[in-house]
Design a protein around this nucleic acid. Structure first.
Lengths: 197, 197, 197, 197
DNA sequence: GCTTAAGCGAGACGGTACGTCGCGTCTTTCT
DNA sequence: AGAAAGACGCGACGTACCGTCTCGCTTAAGC
């Protein structure tokens, strides 16, 4: 039984070096080809130290992505919902296209599918609070009559995000701006303010 | 260079045993924990034979899923588009819930995300022709004024499928019937013929 | 370069606890399975402290054995050389059979074989002065005509001790009393005074 | 549970390369500093293969020494027992002094002390049958009146071998020719033909 | 009695070897 | 020639110990 280590005594330099090395290696070799050994060597950190603080490669990369992710966790609010949504979704796509984060994030996403625990971490650290913001904005919009009073926000929200994942998983090209515009248009047509004006 | 083997002399019993073993093991241990060695042992087939005919575990499982998948490749056409869509999407979800296929399919899907080639195979063998059918049905519906003449079918199609994938990847619960109903309602509101103004 | 520590300020409780822990662990797990970490934990002493005062596990155990060894460093002299030798050799065997010291001593002995420095320490601290006593006694005996005047004491001494080591190394059963008697008889026949011709 | 491998299918080249590498590395670095990894690398053999056939480094080195040991398993018989013994013991010492075998044999010997199983192997493969020969020769000599009829051969045999081990363990210089002569002289004086001629 | 420098317990760390596992290739023998 | 059996080289895994280190805390000597 290896006792739990004391986080207070953790050396932050090793932690940072590990996360940085993980991201770099994902870029250079692709997530699947990255090994914990390679991360340790690149970071100048011992494997024991890595395993002391992370259970697996996926956890390292997840934390690295979380830490390095462009922070926009607050939803834009320009008053124009459609364009706010566009900006928001563009932001999400930005992570996939980011040369430094894309390969890493893709890898974690793939592994999440086979690892319920990792998926849980991923949702907690990267997804849920951002989605909550979107939800809030939409709810407010519905109150403000920017949306139909009976708009099914839950489904709408799902719809807005989901195509990114399907395309990512099946290696279809990710949505571009034009696609986003059409997507948002379709959704607004379904849940926009009742056309009875 | 090992010459390509002659498929005519291939022993079909070995092929079937391999595919069956692959599916069983995915059920028992989960896709990630299945190894080619285990498949070979379970199937009573030599590893050399397996590698003669498949490049990797993922290819075996993909073929096994393809072969065992409930075949409904033809789109239902009851005249009621909404209910046809519901049936169709239920069918897709059936593969995920199928106790024999679910774990295997999930695994291939996950690995596809990291392997462009596998994703290509997956689309070719399991996805594209089915989507084409859906596309055809929708196009016909638009012609028949079951849908708005300017309905953005490409996006609509995407939207209908995508939530399954997002939920699958992030380990959210998969859509149930109620959700499908709401999803289809939303889409129909956007592209349905209603706009009788 | 870490400066040499000041022995005056050394905490004796830590030293004793370390030596005791080392012996206990040798008994419980066998010398080979004892680790410095385990000694430190058991003794409630930090590893830094251990390495401040000892270079390695072997040195700790050697010191522990030295300290705990039944002290009979003075050679018995009852006038009967044969029985004195018997008593003496029994004493040596006692260390091997001592439940508290045996495993530890065995371990140090084994490691000595691969570590010239440790062997040197071992001879200095545990062996040489005792052998010197035996030597002295034998020389006196030769002077007193208890032994032949031309007795080859160096070889005789060697012979008396050596079987213990050979048996120890090769895991033959250690000499028992009967064996000692025969051994001493043989030696006395070779170097005893008998040759009254 | 890894099933036992089939020795018939074993690749002899790998076996030989492993044994050779083990011996070389013992010479270059000393037994203690040799690692299984290093043996594998030097031999161009995988670690898995090594562990398939040997349980530990010590077993490899033991087998290597056994295989490479100068074969004289037959006891010389020139009619002159003393000189035969001298030749025999010189032969044993030769293994310790052999630049190719010495370090390896020393290492196995040391480790035997801590590993009853290894000691058993060592006795079986290298020691017992040779000692049996010596025993036979001595018994014959006693019958032929080259030795006293009541000579205690068991002890005598022990005595002849043992000093080598004691000196080896404690890093005293190994016996040289002069010492052997004196040792044999002493033993012969004890068990030689009764001086009443 | 106050400072200060050492010893100390705790335990994280970089390193290195361990013994195992899975991959994809190969060799042998049988059919 | 295809296949079953399974040994092999490779390389990553996750663990264990080593000996060093950094951190506060204690503790005694010198002011």
């Amino acid at each position: 039984m290896t006792r739990a280590p004391n986080p207070d005594r953790r050396r932050d330099a090793s932690r940072k070096a590990t996360l940085a090395a993980a991201l770099e290696l994902c870029v250079e070799r692709g997530y699947a080809a990255v090994t914990v050994d390679a991360i340790a060597t690149r970071a100048g950190v011992s494997k024991a130290t890595i395993y002391r603080w992370w259970p697996a490669k996926s956890a390292i990369v997840l934390e690295a992505v979380d830490e390095a992710a462009p922070i926009p966790e607050t939803f834009p609010d320009t008053g124009d919902l459609a364009s706010d949504l566009h900006a928001w979704l563009s932001g999400i796509l930005g992570v996939f296209h980011d040369p430094r984060l894309g390969p890493a994030f893709t890898g974690v996403l793939a592994e999440s599918q086979l690892d319920a625990n990792l998926a849980h971490q991923l949702r907690e650290r990267l997804i849920n609070h951002r989605v909550a913001q979107l939800d809030e904005r939409m709810t407010k919009a519905r109150k403000n009559s920017e949306l139909a009073p009976d708009a099914d926000l839950e489904v709408a929200l799902d719809i807005l995000h989901s195509p990114i994942y399907r395309r990512q998983v099946l290696h279809y090209p990710l949505p571009d701006d034009a696609y986003l515009t059409r997507l948002i248009a379709l959704v607004m047509r379904a849940i926009g303010p009742t056309r009875a004006d």
